[in-house]
Design a protein around this nucleic acid. Structure first.
Lengths: 203, 203
DNA sequence: GTCTATAGAAAGATAGAC
DNA sequence: GTCTATCTTTCTATAGAC
């Protein structure tokens, strides 16, 4: 590992700025409505310069997803390092809460599941898939542990629990409640978290 | 009310065919990726002819939403007419199940919440808003009744319950589980319904 | 690598004949 | 009202100078 030169560090910093701008715009407008012009404008460079760093709009979105996975993996690692270790069910609640906080902060990129060119890019990128699989492994371990401890609804298979936790990241209820305007972001997240883990029905 | 002429009935039937095609394509690809050309092609008419019926892509999507609201109101009316009347909580479960069935059947139009021209069209159309408010009133009445009966999680305000039920219509967990391929649509819906009302945590 | 300028393609919307 | 043909705009992507 050579020490990176000044030039290289500037380059990396610029790429980070591009990805962060893309991430914000993906959260705000979604993939289809985000334009590469806007991203370049936010970074303060020309569109042609952006295309020297990322070969397509899809690869730019994929880079934003890789960054999101890295943030998620870092959060999970933090939680795994806690001593004493929290109960697995609490770990699941924590990661669900974290993803909702990211969404509420306007930092959760929203990609249409239907867009095939985007799907092709994501499923063809090992850096993204590796992170996604590792994240699923780690959260999946919490699911199994919680199930073994009898803390999870025994009706539900592990994948259902995993995907339901993932889905909090794009839960539209957050935005609707915020637009209604009668509660704080924290209160809204508490409500959605309670409905997710405790259910709508009385206990 | 004059009896509609043959010509008029043909016209109405054609508009229905257009809206149904748009509805399917909205479900399949979403608003941004659906093209007016495709809709026209599916109906078997020229794009210019479609624009004689609907003044814009947005108004076409709005017509699909009005149709969806009518279907939902019809379902709710059916459930209200049952004798003996089901428990309010079961009514809520029934409408959540219905909306998931519509999604699984590929008939749930998916509109991006972020698109402002589309939002402007929807919030400017009394025919859509009237139906949405009426639907919310009726389902809201079930929520209140269920709450009064002590059947709902007392932590949650009524709007949270209402929006959480609505959100099942676009729950991405359904599509992910179906793509995983290991369960029937009916089984998947049962799981998601259980996680929604009973929660992920054990009782 | 960054810029300006532009090519190329897609899609919403319309003109005008019938 | 329906068609073919076209306009217009928007956006992705690239060419070519520096």
């Amino acid at each position: 590992m050579d020490k990176p030169s000044f030039r290289e560090r500037v380059l990396v910093a610029r790429e980070q700025a591009i990805v962060e701008a893309a991430n914000r715009l993906l959260a705000e407008k979604g993939f289809d409505l985000m334009t590469v012009d806007e991203v370049a404008a936010q970074v303060g460079i020309a569109k042609a310069s952006l295309y020297k760093h990322f070969s397509s709009k899809e690869s730019l979105a994929a880079a934003a997803m890789v960054r999101l996975m890295d943030r998620a993996l870092a959060f999970v690692a933090e939680r795994e390092a806690l001593d004493p270790a929290p109960a697995p069910l609490d770990q699941l609640k924590a990661v669900a809460r974290w993803s909702m906080e990211v969404q509420m902060a306007g930092e959760m990129p929203s990609l249409p599941a239907q867009n095939s060119s985007l799907r092709a890019e994501l499923t063809g990128r090992a850096d993204y898939l590796d992170r996604l699989f590792e994240l699923s492994d780690r959260i999946g371990a919490w699911v199994e542990a919680a199930q073994a401890a009898g803390a999870l609804n025994p009706q539900l298979p592990p994948e259902v629990v995993l995907y339901t936790v993932y889905a909090r990241a794009c839960d539209p209820v957050l935005a609707v409640l915020r637009q209604a305007g009668s509660a704080s972001s924290e209160q809204i997240i508490d409500w959605v978290l309670a409905s997710c883990f405790d259910g709508l029905a009385a206990r």
